[in-house]
Each structure stands twice: as structure tokens, then as C-alpha cells.
Design a protein around this nucleic acid. Structure first.
Lengths: 208, 208
DNA sequence: ATTTTTATCAAACAACCGTTTGAATTTGTA
DNA sequence: TACAAATTCAAACGGTTGTTTGATAAAAAT
């Protein structure tokens, strides 16, 4: 329980607060209070608010994109043939939804944070994504392109971005209001994951 | 130009500010300044900040959903047969993108506001959508269901929500960073609209 | 023209924000 | 044990927030 350091408690609480009320509404006072420490501790450990947010994002994003890269590496290793489309989509989508479903490590909170960062056009996230993760995104777009040679390059680009939009939408738990009551969280996420992949797969099918 | 009343100038400026910096970062002082009026005028005309936001949202949402309803009414009138899927999707999507592309009436700003409202889980919007517009959304889901009898009801439900996510994502202009430079705004939105409808259409195609 | 309502405005209010300070406390080390 | 470094804490700083007040100005009504 309270074996966590103050620094870790602050990071975890920051995830929790931002997932609940968003970036621009979050205050260091509510964070320090909920993390059972002092207001000044935030500035002591992280310098300022901006750096706290950056560290909170980087802690999880590296993990998420590494999972995606590993899955794509496995698919592309040992063959120069185009990958199976469904497997590529799964390699991109499942790490996000797995994190969403991971309660123990706080990943489920982070995916909501990520959705909010997308939505609020967070400068921190935008810079991180364009500087540190754009290569991975391009790799996936290329893999999809190779798996769907019948689709125009621009069309693949658009639909991949639409799917990212749907993914963010789901991560933010917008469907929650219409969730069937008798489903556990695990069941819900499993269905959601399956439906989203089929949705993505279907959206890359050839149109007449 | 300045034939607009103070009330209208405040509403328009609120749209503009929120589309730029979001709900939680917006302040009544920046709004009153930019609307070329006094700070107290906001509270005088709208009571408080919350009611200002509600009025700003309601002013446009009624218009948007009425456009959708009109299009769907036309499709369903005169025949008890299921509607054409593409036409149903167009009836839902095009009003949003038309508003996005409408500069004269300020609709383009509002669609960004709407995207932010979705993203920030605005209570105002959530209540409005679930109380005032849920019937329309259910009508569209049903029309899609009838047009795709080969798909399970739950699958239709999921994919319709995924598409709403993609629509919000597009409205928020997230693809902007990757926009081709030599496209005008009008051209960009026409392409975007077309791609999104084909995307939605494709996503409801039967999967193997 | 006078009264009444409506609208605008500068100023002030209390509450909250991120950050800094300097002293107290805990922890690690010699 | 004694010293030094790392950490915690209450308090205060200047700045911004939404809201209210009361005086002024404009418009409408009598």
C-alpha cells in the first residue's frame, strides 16, 4: 500500500485526477492533497506542473508503443511478404485496449488520460507523438498499405486516422452510458476489443 | 458588421474562444474583451458562465439535429422499405461536415466546440444529448440496422458509435497536421466528407 | 418632458491558481 | 553520536478566476 514513494503517489494521483476532470481543470492542490503529501512536494520532485505532466505521459507511452512495436516486429520477422491485415490492426489496437483493461498497474486510468490529451490537443502529447512515436505510426500505416494494395495510399491514410479516432473515442469510455448492465468490466472490454478490430478490418475492405 | 447585439457578439466570441482553447481554459474576461464589451455584461445577459455555455450549445445543436432529421424523413417517406445504407450515413454525417465547412454562419467554429465538448465530457452536452437528441440517434441506429439485416444488432450499435468517434475526431481537425498544403479548406472538407462516408459505408460491409 | 426600464461600465470581492521561501523534520552517512 | 543531505511542511507571494455592486448612460414608455 503505502510503500509507494511520494513521487510515485503524485504520478499515480495525477493520472487519476486528469482521467477524471481533464488537464486544464486539474490543480496541484487537489493532486497533493489526494496523494497525501504537501503542495510544495510537487514542485520539489518535478520542478513545475508542466514537467509533472510530461513525466506522467512518458512513463506510460514508452510502454504502450513498445508493445505495439514488439507485435509488429514479430509479424514482419522471417518474411518479406505483406502481413495479414487483421494481425496488423490487432498489433496496433490490442496494446491500447489491454492497457485500458489493466487495473493493477493503473493503465486503465492512463488510457483515459491519453484520450483527454488527444481531445484537448495537449501540446505535451502532440510534441511527444510527432517527435518520438511518429516513426512507429508510419510503420503501421505502411504495413496496412502493403496488406491492402487494392486501396489508394491516401485512402489508407484517412481510414487509419479514422480508426485512431474511434480508438480514442472508445478509450475515453464514451460508450459507457449505453453499456449493458450485466457485463463485467473484463467482458465489456473483451467485446469492445473484438468489435473494434472487426470494425477496423471491415473498414479496410474493398468498396464497390 | 457591428449590427450584432451584445448578446450575439458574446455568443459568437464564446464559440470562437472555446473552439481555440477549450471549455475549461476559457475565461469570461477574454470573451468580454474580444466581444468588445464589459465583463459584467456576460453575467447581465446570461446569468452565469454555465448558462452562457448552455445557450451557446443549444443555439446550434437544434439546427444540426433538425438537418439530420429532415434528411432521414425524406429517405423514409413514401416507402416502408429499408433505406439505402449510404444515404442513411450521409444523412447523419453530411450535416455535421456541412456545418464544419460553413464559415459565414460560424458553424465551422461550432463543430470544433462540439468536438471539444465530447472530448472534455461536458456535462452540459451529455445532458443535452441524452435528453433531447437520443431519440434521433436511436432512429438512425434503427435505420442502419434495417439496411444491414446481415449484421447483428449489437454490431451495428458498436460500429455506429465508432463512426461517431471518427466523426468527432475529424471535426476536431486532428488530421490538420497532415493536411496537404496545396488544398483549400473547401477542397479539404469535401475530400474529408467523401472519405468519411466511404469509410463508414465500408465498415458496415459484411465481414467473413 | 419626465419617468421607468434596460444596458453598460469600472471597481471591488472572495476564492483559487502555480510557485517560492525558509524553517522543521526525516533520512543517510561518516 | 554528530554531521550533512534529502525531504516535508505551513505560510505567503502575485496573478487570474467568476461573480457582485453601485454608479452611469442609453432607450423606451408614459
Amino acid at each position: 500500500m503505502s510503500v509507494l514513494s511520494t513521487k510515485e503517489r503524485i504520478l499515480n494521483t495525477t493520472e487519476k485526477i486528469i482521467s477524471e476532470i481533464g488537464f486544464s481543470s486539474m490543480s496541484l492542490r487537489t493532486i497533493s492533497t489526494q496523494a497525501k503529501t504537501n503542495l510544495a512536494a510537487v514542485n520539489y520532485h518535478f520542478g513545475n506542473k508542466e514537467k509533472l505532466i510530461e513525466m506522467m505521459l512518458e512513463r506510460r507511452l514508452d510502454n504502450l508503443f513498445q508493445l505495439r512495436i514488439n507485435l509488429l516486429d514479430n509479424l514482419e520477422s522471417g518474411s518479406s511478404q505483406p502481413c495479414n491485415l487483421k494481425q496488423v490492426l490487432e498489433a496496433f489496437i490490442t496494446p491500447a485496449l489491454t492497457m485500458s483493461n489493466d487495473k493493477h498497474q493503473g493503465g486503465s486510468l492512463f488510457m483515459k488520460v491519453l484520450a483527454r490529451a488527444y481531445a484537448e490537443k495537449s501540446e505535451y502529447l502532440h510534441d511527444l507523438l510527432s517527435k518520438r512515436y511518429s516513426d512507429t505510426i508510419k510503420r503501421f500505416a505502411l504495413a496496412i498499405q502493403r496488406a491492402c494494395p487494392y486501396l489508394d495510399e491516401q485512402v489508407v491514410f484517412w481510414r487509419f486516422h479514422f480508426i485512431m479516432g474511434a480508438l480514442v473515442y472508445v478509450m475515453a469510455d464514451f460508450g459507457a452510458s449505453s453499456r449493458t448492465n450485466n457485463l463485467s468490466d473484463t467482458e465489456y472490454f473483451n467485446i469492445c476489443c473484438n468489435e473494434l478490430i472487426n470494425f477496423a478490418l471491415s473498414s479496410f475492405s474493398q468498396t464497390s
